[in-house]
Amino acid sequence: MATYQLKIAHLYGDLMNTYGDVGNILAMDYYAKQMDTDISTQLVSLGDHFDPNDFDIIFFGGGQDFEQTIVAQDLPSKADAITEFIEAGGPTLAICGGFQLLGQYYIGADGEKITGTKSMSHYTKNQKDHRFIGDTIIKDEQTGEVYHGFENHQGMTFLGDDEAPLGVVSEGAGNNGQDGTEGVHYKNVYGTYFHGPILTRNGDIAKHLLVEALKRKYPNQDFSAQANMEIPATF
């Protein structure tokens, strides 16, 4: 057994699991092992109670339209707890539909307005008969880190004034194809349209999530070795 233990809440993992998003959990597990850390994952789905104090990381993947509407119906019962986790600095990774559902609302394929958890200020509109599909490259202007992904989405997301993008688009469409932003980085939340999956191609983001989670759970320990770990390029 490793020295440290972290527990991931896999939000609606039985319904929100498109495009290899589960690879993000595999990647966190892979890098956690190199940090002397064991990862356990628990599915939190329809009708389940979510207690933010039970978990160190939230992972919320993307889903198909039908599944996403079912998830949205269950989400109000967990919305406050999710917001509490995020506001307290809980490390969170949200992909595609998960990213949309942590915001204010999104407009579905048939024009219906679907309410999110309202944990963050972004919102998502729908574009008719068009999807953003293809390889994407973005750059985090603060850290200089470059991230690679594959986007495949119909939604057009617009960030709020209190939200920074995960990166600035140098290839691909990003959040909405208009303002050059991709994803969101708010407190310790990483939201994105990247599949690929994002953490298997961009191990540095996995490292950030894990180190933040370790610091929160073990406040008296020194994790500078983990934070300085070199992540070799995988893409």
Binding site: Y19, G20, D21, H195, G196
Partner: peptide
């Protein structure tokens, strides 16, 4: 398929 994400499933 131009998206290789599926190998993670």
């Amino acid at each position: 398929g131009i998206d290789t994400s599926w190998i993670w499933d």
